[in-house]
Computed example of a mutant assay.
Amino acid sequence: MASIIKRGRSWRAMIVRKGQRTSATFDTRAEAEEWAVRAEASILSGVSVKAVTPMAGNQTVVDLFRRYADEVSPLRRGERWEQIRLAAFCRSSRFAVPLSLFSAVDMAAWRDDRLCEVAASTINRDLNLMSAVFTHAIKEWRAPLQSNPVSDIKRPRNPKCRTRRVSQKERDAIADYLGWDAASTPVTSREWVAFAFFLALETAMRKGELLSLTWGDTHLQRNYVHLSSTKNGEERDVPLSSAAKALFLLACPGQSTRHVIPITSGYLDTTFRRATRALGIKDLHFHDARREAATQLSKRLSNVLELSAVTGHKSLDLLKVYYRPDPSDLASKLG
C-alpha cells in the first residue's frame, strides 16, 4: 500500500511497486489517497512510473506538451501530425509559463497571435489538440490547472465548408502528370499517388484509411474492404464498386501484412500538391476526392443510411458537408 504522510500543510503520497518508486504532494489527504490508488493500479497493470507521476506546479506548459508528445501521442492515430504540432507549440514563448500560472488569458493571447498568421480552421484544429492535452493532464497527471484553458476562451469562427468538386479533366491530368496510365500496375511512388487519388474517388475513403490498408483487410471475392481503425474510432466495411475492385486488382494483391499503397502520408501530400501546382489546378486538395466520391455515390445510393455506411459519417450534418450535387442533376430529376 501507499504511504501517506502529512508535511506541513500538504500531504505526500509515496508508492513502491514492482521495483518502481514514485511520490507526489497534494493539498488534502483525500487527493493523495485517490491518486495513490489509481497510480498503484496503473503500475500493477504495467504502466511506467513516469506515466503516473503528477505534473509539478513549476513545470511549464512546454513541459506538458513535450510529455504528451512522448507518452500519449505514440499511442494514437495521427502520431506524426500531433508530435509536429506539439513541437511547434513548444517554440512559442506564450507557453513558457508555469502550469500553476497559465490561464485562459494566456490561451487567448496565443489565439490572437495565430490569427495574424493562419486561418481560423487551422487554429481550431490546434485548439482541439491542446484541449485534449490539457484534459489528459488534469485527469491523469493531476496538472495544477483550475480548468481546461481552451474551454474558457472563444474560438474563431471557421470559414464556410469547402464545396470543391473534382472534374474528369483534372483527374486525368493528375494521372498523366504523375506518369500513370490508369490501366497498369503502379510501379513508381509517383504512380502510387495517382492510384491513391483514383481509389479515393471511387471509395470515399480518407487518405489515412487508404494508406493503412493491408491486403489482409481486403475481401475482393466479397467486394469489400474492412477498416479496423477510422477517424471516428469505429470499424467500417467499405463496399467496392466494379471500378474500385478493378483498381485493387491492378495493385496486384500480395501478402496479408503488405500495404496496398506503399507510400507515406508525407510523400503523398507533397507530391499531390506539387502536381496540382505544376498543372495550374487551383484550390484542389487530396481530401476533395472524398466529397466527389460521396456525391457520385449518392446517385447510386439514394438511401442516406446506406451512403453514410459507405462514407463512415455518423451524422447527417457531417454527411451534408461532403454531398455537393450539381443543380442541373437535381433539376433533371424534377422533370
Rank of each mutant, 00 (worst) to 15 (best):
K6E: 09
K6H: 01
C252D: 11
T264Y: 09
S167K: 05
S42V: 00
L319P: 05
T122C: 06
N124Q: 12
K282R: 13
A69T: 12
Q146C: 03
E71K: 04
V187K: 08
A251M: 09
N148H: 08
H285Q: 14
R17N: 01
D63K: 10
S45C: 06
L101T: 12
L250Y: 07
G57Y: 03
R142V: 06
C161V: 12
E170A: 12
S48F: 07
V47P: 02
L127H: 10
S147E: 13
Q255F: 08
P159R: 12
D112V: 11
A32F: 05
R77A: 13
L201Q: 03
W192V: 03
D113E: 15
A87K: 15
V187C: 06
L44R: 14
E292I: 06
V97Y: 00
R258F: 08
K18M: 03
V310P: 00
S189V: 00
V52R: 04
L305K: 15
A331K: 14
L249C: 09
A275D: 02
E117P: 01
Y323R: 06
S151D: 15
R155G: 02
F134N: 00
P98G: 09
R274P: 02
W110P: 02
S189H: 11
Q83S: 04
P262E: 11
A120N: 15
F134C: 02
V52N: 06
A246M: 04
A294H: 00
W215E: 09
T311R: 00
F26G: 04
V321E: 09
L240N: 07
L86R: 02
D317R: 13
L99I: 01
R17K: 13
E82L: 07
D112I: 10
R142D: 10
L227S: 04
V193A: 02
L268A: 05
A204T: 08
K18C: 03
P159K: 12
Q20I: 04
Y68V: 05
